[in-house]
Write a protein that binds this DNA or RNA. Structure first.
Length: 845
RNA sequence: GCCGGGGUGGCGGAAUCGGCAGACGCAGCAGACUUAAAAUCUGCCGGGGGUAUCCCCGUACGGGUUCGAGUCCCGUCCUCGGCACCA
């Protein structure tokens, strides 16, 4: 009988649906396993085979876990708020809810084609008021805890999307979504205080079973940096104190000038009249530059002297204060002490403006430096001499007029470890000792302290857009900013006539009087609603908590259900969410934990990022026109073949190039397997050791490849096994071998697995069966082939007893006729025996 | 610039504990079946030389460690990803 995948697949998908086979049975008494896909944004273009890859991997894994005896929660839903639906609405006038519903229906149909064991009774949709009610609930909770706050600040603004963006959404100075260059705009914005969780977000990465790459990206993003805050007084301004952040307090004696960010609030106050015009012009110029121009294009150092001097906190020396755009207002304190001898950027700046460079760290040469006279010029990276008298020149040359080249000290740049020099009482200390000693001294005098700074900023949690969760806040003239009471949630998204953001940067909701005008929940007086909506990342920051209890209308989820199923055991999705979604979801989880609603504080125990599917070397995308449509593949090769090919194509974590021929190979394999089964299933042979051995080895190899997630090689294990079975099929195949094949195949090709299982006479689903185990005793061989090397080169192969001793193996090797000529006239000086693998004879003339 | 991943046959990839490089599949070649083709089955399939079953070379490139290196170390080149004046 020929294998007709379409018939088999239709039959089983119908049966699964009729028997509601994949609805989770929370009372099954089995151990729980939560396998989750990153839920999709239901776009208009539908799924291509690249999307299939992650879903296939997670489904194979879910079914594997089912066979291992777990009660598996494998749900699916829709991240349904978002700009594309809204942009389509603007263009075509179709309500986003309508187009979203249509896209969801199409996505759902396509996802069902995968033959996955999704429990559709738990389907969720972030744009459903029954869901976003709880997204708003969490916002209110955050507001109550001071984690959501409103702030007037310059935010990233996308002129094309006409909306604010979080830092995470700005890539190379451009909007992550549309690529338009981002500008700054000062606006009142709702912010979430994710920085309050910066330490926990960094530290808790340690306990997660995630790819190092993603952990590294998150750590980078959070950018925790330990250092010191140091205060500098400004000469002649008793009330002005400049605070700097530095990771190198040990180099304090090498600070020869200071730099403020052009936007720094003290700039105006301390600038001297003589310098005012130059400073004003520079500040104006800087503000005009876009983020791109300032950060990416050109790193040539520019800056202007303010005319003011700061007092060195330890030496009392006066050092000039400059402004320059290489110092960013957003990071640290917006001001630095410049140590050109030991910081690359300061070095460039000092060179450009002829500022003095004073060496205060000398590289250490073997054991030297204890004397405190660390003057020996070590070789490594130290390309200049030390001018011990640098301090005098420091002050004198510190004017704006100082021409390049007049600075006295000609010294190099050195950023490595070493010992302190030119640092008064601290000479001779190592860099690390110096940091501690100098910070301690500053702290004692109240002019500095140890501190930690982060690169990460608070999260701009508002969009001036329509298609999102309304921020549940009411402004009352009497009571101020009041959250909408939980019992009044959800704040529903009203219908609007037009979806365009307003020219003023307000959301379209601002134009709807019936929405804006409301009464204050506190005093009952007239009040206005917030008209901004939440960013697309809001719903996805907690949706995984909803699946265990998706229909709960009294709370976002029951504590018991959440604690029972979460953390997610296996979370599968693309690496593009490494910082955005995954960081936000971790943050929300920690907040919800702190609210006392759950017992865990990390949402995803194990994360797996599948690689992209490429066609002609490029990521598949509808806009590029290089997509392979799964519907076409299914119509010819069938779902099971496509699933297997998605795995076979390459290591699951690596990108893979689509190849029709590869699919063909897998398709042929399934046909071969089916015919083989068909041939033997009616009249199985009695068992025999040969078959038992093959079976145990197959199960061992397959299980090992599953456990190490080498799913591409798991598929080849099937091919190897079938090849081996066909080699011995002349004497018939036993039932046990066929059963093993059917069960193990089922996670990969579930329809065929069920069909074969049924042909074996079973009336229950193959997924009620158990993943087979294997016995070590069948993995051992009585005899093994070992390679015989002479001086590391293979000269013969030898079959010996598996438990042969070193002596007997070497004796056998030496007497082998193929080996003997290589030993003739030589002396064997060393004999190596690796049991089961090889013998190596080392000879000399 | 900094951090990280990766360079293996004509192709996708195996070998991740330092121990027989090229599993498995694709493509190709030869053969069987067929009136013929498709499908299916069998054999060969890194390069060079002998062409007999043997020898030499070979995992980006150059060195090194080791009895033995795709695997470890140093350097170089290429490539992909992240961050990018983060003090």
């Amino acid at each position: 009988m020929e294998y007709r995948p379409q018939e088999v697949e239709k039959k089983w998908s119908r049966r699964w649906a009729e028997s509601r086979a994949y609805e989770v049975r929370p009372d099954s008494g089995k151990p729980k396993y939560y396998a989750l896909d990153m839920f999709p944004y239901p776009s208009g273009s539908g799924l291509h085979v690249g999307h299939w890859r992650g879903y296939t991997i997670s489904d194979v894994w879910s079914r594997y876990k089912t066979l291992q005896g777990y009660e598996v929660l494998h749900p699916m839903g829709w991240d349904a708020f978002g700009l594309p639906a809204e942009n389509a609405a603007i263009k075509l006038g179709i309500h986003p809810a309508v187009s979203t519903a249509r896209n969801v229906a199409n996505f759902k149909r396509q996802l069902q084609e995968i033959g996955a064991m999704y429990d559709w009774s738990r389907e969720i949709n972030t744009s459903d008021p029954a869901f976003y009610k709880w997204t708003q609930f969490f916002f209110v909770k955050m507001f109550e805890r001071g984690l959501a706050y409103r702030k007037k600040m310059p935010i990233n603004w996308c002129p094309s999307c006409k909306t604010g963006l979080a830092n995470e959404e700005v890539v190379d100075g451009c909007c992550e979504r549309c690529g338009t260059e981002v500008t700054k705009r000062v606006m009142d914005q709702w912010m979430l205080k994710i920085t309050a969780y910066a330490d926990r977000l960094t530290d808790d990465l340690d306990k997660l079973d995630w790819p190092d790459k993603v952990k590294r990206m998150q750590r980078n993003w959070i950018g925790r940096s330990r250092g010191a805050r140091i205060f500098f007084l400004v000469a002649g301004h008793a009330d002005a104190r400049i605070e700097v952040f530095t990771t190198r307090p040990d180099t304090l004696y090498g600070a020869t000038y200071m730099v403020l960010a052009p936007e720094h609030p003290l700039v105006d106050q301390i600038t001297t009249e003589a310098q005012r015009d130059a400073v004003d012009a520079y500040v104006k110029e800087t503000l005009k530059k876009s983020a791109v121009a300032r950060q990416v294009v050109d790193k040539t150092k520019t800056g202007v002297f303010t005319g003011a001097y700061a007092e060195h906190p330890l030496t009392g020396q006066q050092i000039p204060i400059w402004i320059a755009d290489y110092v960013l207002m957003e990071y640290g304190t917006g001001a630095i002490m410049a140590v050109p001898a030991h910081d690359e950027r300061d070095f460039e700046f000092a060179q450009a403006f002829g500022l003095p460079i004073v060496q205060v760290v000398a590289p250490e040469t073997n054991g030297a430096g204890d004397s405190g006279q660390g003057r020996e010029s070590g070789s490594g990276g130290f390309d200049g001499s030390v001018d011990a008298s640098g301090w005098t020149t420091a002050v004198e040359s510190g004017s704006a007029e100082a021409a390049a080249g007049t600075a006295a000290a000609v010294t190099g740049l050195y950023t490595g470890p070493g010992r302190l020099i030119n640092s008064g009482p601290y000479d001779g200390l190592t860099v690390e000792e110096g940091k501690r000693a100098i910070v301690a001294a500053l702290a004692e005098r109240g002019i500095g302290e140890e501190t930690v700074t982060y690169r990460m900023r608070d999260w701009v949690f508002a969009r001036q857009r329509y298609w999102g969760e309304p921020i549940p806040i009411i402004y009352c003239d009497q009571c101020g900013t009041v959250p909408v009471p939980v019992e009044d949630l959800p704040v529903r998204l009203p219908d609007v006539e037009r979806y365009e953001p307003t020219g003023t940067g307000e959301s379209p909701l601002a134009a709807i009087d019936s929405f804006v005008h409301t009464t204050c929940p506190k005093c009952g007086g007239p009040a206005r609603r917030e008209t901004d909506t939440m960013p697309q990342w809001a719903g996805s920051s907690w949706y995984f908590l909803r699946y265990p209890d998706p229909h709960n209308d009294r709370e976002p989820f029951s504590r018991e259900a959440a604690n029972e199923w979460l953390p997610v055991d296996m979370y599968i999705g693309g690496v593009e969410h490494a910082v955005l979604h995954l960081l936000y979801a971790r943050f929300f989880t920690k907040v919800i934990h702190d609210l006392g609603m759950i017992d865990f504080d990390e949402p995803f125990q194990h994360l797996f990022n599948q690689g992209m599917m490429t066609l002609n070397g490029a990521k598949m995308s509808k806009s590029k026109g290089n997509v392979v449509n799964p519907d076409d593949i299914i119509a010819t090769a069938g779902t099971d073949a496509l699933r297997m090919y998605e795995l076979f194509v390459g290591p699951p974590e690596e990108d893979a190039e689509w190849n029709d021929n590869g699919l063909e190979g897998v398709s042929r394999f399934l046909g071969r397997l089916y015919r083989f089964f068909d041939q033997h299933v009616e009249h199985p042979a009695p068992s025999r050791p040969e078959l038992v051995k093959l079976r145990h080895r197959f199960v061992a190899q397959l299980t090992e490849r599953m456990e190490s997630f080498r799913l591409n090689t798991a598929v080849s294990a099937f091919m190897e096994y079938l090849n081996a079975l066909q080699g011995v099929a002349g004497n018939g195949i036993d039932r046990e071998s066929l059963e093993t094949l059917a069960v193990t195949l089922a996670p990969f090709a579930p329809h065929l697995g069920e069909e074969l299982w049924e042909r074996l006479g079973h009336t229950e689903s193959v997924f009620t069966a158990e993943w087979p185990s294997y016995d070590e005793q069948w993995l051992r061989d009585d005899e093994v082939e070992v390679a015989v090397q002479v001086n590391g080169r293979i000269r013969a192969r030898l079959t010996i007893s598996a438990d042969a001793t070193q002596e007997s193996a070497i004796a056998a090797a030496k007497s082998n006729p193929d080996v003997a000529p290589w030993l003739e006239g030589k002396t064997v000086v060393k004999e190596i025996f690796v049991p089961g693998r090889l013998v190596n004879l080392v000879v000399r003339d």
